[in-house]
């Protein structure tokens, strides 16, 4: 039972780290671009938003599958 839980946590943790790293990358880009002045900043924000939404949607789907998997496995092992 315990080893099973550790196994289930593995991918979840890796996913979390990946999300963190990937969200961090565009924000570095925006920070770099901030010197360019007000008008030209808008495209950077849109790119940032788009890439963040990609990560969020993929992660949301992955987490939802993970949660449902864990739920079914718990009920199966009862």
């Amino acid at each position: 039972m315990r080893s099973f839980q550790l196994r289930a946590l593995g991918p979840a943790r890796a996913l979390g780290a990946a999300v963190f790293a990937a969200v961090l990358t565009p924000s570095v880009l925006v920070a770099q671009a901030s010197g360019l002045g007000q008008q030209s900043l808008r495209p950077y924000w849109h790119v940032f938003a788009a890439y963040t939404l990609v990560i969020l949607l993929v992660a949301a789907w992955a987490f939802s599958i993970g949660r449902r998997l864990k739920d079914v496995e718990n009920r199966l092992s009862d």
Binding site: A14, A18, T25, P26, V54, I55, V58
Partner: peptide, 17 residues
């Protein structure tokens, strides 16, 4: 495959930025 894909996604982000 998902983990490979996520690593690839970070690589893709790096390439495109």
């Amino acid at each position: 495959l998902t983990l490979i894909g996520l690593a690839g996604l970070i690589g893709l982000f790096w390439l495109s930025f």
